[in-house]
Amino acid sequence: DHDVVPEDKFQETLHLKEKEGCPQAFHALLSWLLTQDSTAILDFWRVLFKDYNLERYGRLQPILDSFPKDVDLSQPRKGRKPPAVPKALVPPPRLPTKRKASEEARAAAPAALTPRGTASPGSQLKAKPPKKPESSAEQQRLPLGNGIQTMSASVQRAVAMSSGDVPGARGAVEGILIQQVFESGGSKKCIQVGGEFYTPSKFEDSGSGKNKARSSSGPKPLVRAKGAQGAAPGGGEARLGQQGSVPAPLALPSDPQLHQKNEDECAVCRDGGELICCDGCPRAFHLACLSPPLREIPSGTWRCSSCLQATVQEVQPRAEEPRPQEPPVETPLPPGLRSAGEEVRGPPGEPLAGMDTTLVYKHLPAPPSAAPLPGLDSSALHPLLCVGPEGQQNLAPGARCGVCGDGTDVLRCTHCAAAFHWRCHFPAGTSRPGTGLRCRSCSGDVTPAPVEGVLAPSPARLAPGPAKDDTASHEPALHRDDLESLLSEHTFDGILQWAIQSMARPAAPFPS
């Protein structure tokens, strides 16, 4: 592969990997390779389809078979030569091979799209000592099968071997295949498990690692696999990028399955594409389908809103127990993405979901129960707010008499603000006073009005108090039968009158 990737590009890729991570280095090298001529790309395919690569990765054979028959990708048995050289000459001794072996032994695996480039050397060096003999053996194999790289107009793939297949390693990572398949204008990513390549439709969760975000852009890794992070704060999961590491605690105790298979379609829109997988259930989501939507993949363990709600429900009964003089119970939860139609709101002032922060849900004790107040519409209280300059209440639009249902020339009671006709409430011909108009209920007259088809109010509507207090003497005590009587009149003013009279009014101040 030294004929494909020059030394300066190799060093530039290593520097970019240390600065921005393996995914960015892979993407940059792939983009550079696509700008080369067809001879360089053909050399790339020839390096990929060597015999030892085909033996190690069985899924490469179907890719090789898909090439046109007129494309010669065979390799000479006596060494490598550029395709432009007409004579089959043995190339001179390859010093770059020693360079590659020494550099890969030092860096474990470079971040390139060629056999030198995919593992994360920093994480491997940190986690190597417990498994040094086995990992050293794996390093000797890295130059042979560490990076199976493929690129063409139909298929483009980048393979990364790992030393996680050490025997006896619980939940060992089998390997990473960062794979971009450009077929019919689409893009897919796969993962390699035990020599087999699994596409998103049959993606397997190998051991402790999972394909957290099938994305090839942005600074985030394709698999949430930063070796420096180790395990999740809650004892979460091992990262795919942690090559040759000792077994780590796999999943939280509440995880239903340690080796679950995540779905390959969004649980909201039932469509495929780039998904984020939940650590607590097999569901996966688009970032845009979450509520609120996320802009980037959160670091650490992530769970959907259903799993978060289940966790909150487990903690909430203990938080609601009476604990005198104790601060509110704080339950730190990872930043969760909410699927459509589901929402768990945190306290005000918290950062938005999706940031690399930890939301704190506070379970406050329930407030003391209070008697429910009568629910009145805002339009129902409008007549009470229509007060004239002299303190006389004006008529609201649409006000109707509670007896006849007519809204023409209605009066407004100064005591309960109900609309009424003087002739309907006082049919006996009582003279109307000039000021202080009161309806039949507030004036103490319980004589029913002779209106055909309208039920008369119940005599129990009024329960006047002592006459010594004029204001308190007109406080009506309405009961269920009074409400039914008012409802039978089918008037809004009657219902409003009952609601206003049912509310307690402050006692009249004593004259000074």
Rank of each mutant, 00 (worst) to 15 (best):
L486F: 07
E452S: 09
K468L: 07
G402W: 09
I297Q: 05
H474A: 09
E489Q: 10
E326I: 12
V451I: 14
S305W: 08
G434T: 02
S245E: 07
P253M: 14
C386Q: 14
P348E: 13
T414W: 14
R412D: 05
I495E: 02
P247V: 13
R438Q: 04
E321L: 11
Q242Y: 14
P464T: 11
P511A: 13
P324L: 13
L437I: 07
H474T: 03
A340P: 12
H425N: 06
P327G: 12
E314G: 12
H490S: 13
P334R: 11
Q393Y: 15
C278L: 08
S473V: 07
L385P: 09
R345S: 09
A319L: 11
G273L: 04
L364E: 05
L250R: 10
G391P: 13
L333S: 08
L275M: 11
E343Q: 15
P327T: 07
E265F: 06
D445K: 09
D356N: 13
G280Q: 10
C401H: 02
L496R: 02
D264E: 08
P348C: 08
V410D: 02
C307K: 15
G465M: 13
A463H: 13
E390K: 07
R412T: 05
G453W: 15
P365E: 10
L483E: 01
P249Q: 09
G405N: 09
R440T: 11
D271F: 02
A380P: 06
P292N: 05
P389G: 15
P365S: 09
V454L: 10
V312F: 14
W498D: 03
G429P: 05
V454F: 07
P389S: 07
H490N: 13
H479W: 11
A284F: 07
A380K: 05
P249R: 08
E390A: 13
A366V: 09
D356V: 03
R283D: 14
L258N: 02
R283S: 13
H474F: 15
T311I: 07
P324E: 11
A463D: 03
E343L: 12
R412Q: 08
H474C: 07
D493G: 03
T301S: 09
A467G: 07
D279A: 13
Q260A: 06
M503K: 01
P249L: 14
N394L: 15
Q325K: 10
T447L: 10
C278E: 07
A310G: 09
S306R: 11
L381K: 05
H415D: 06
R338M: 01
A472P: 10
P293M: 00
L496N: 00
Q313E: 12
E343N: 14
G398K: 06
G354S: 08
W302L: 10
G273E: 12
M355L: 12
P368I: 07
I500V: 04
R440M: 09
P348I: 06
S378Y: 11
S245Y: 13
S488A: 07
P368C: 15
C304P: 15
G336N: 11
A419C: 12
S245L: 10
S502P: 04
P476C: 03
P351L: 12
S443L: 07
R480T: 12
G388M: 09
L385T: 07
C413A: 02
D481C: 03
P450G: 15
Q316I: 11
G375W: 14
P459L: 10
C281Y: 06
S378L: 13
N262G: 09
F510A: 03
H286Q: 14
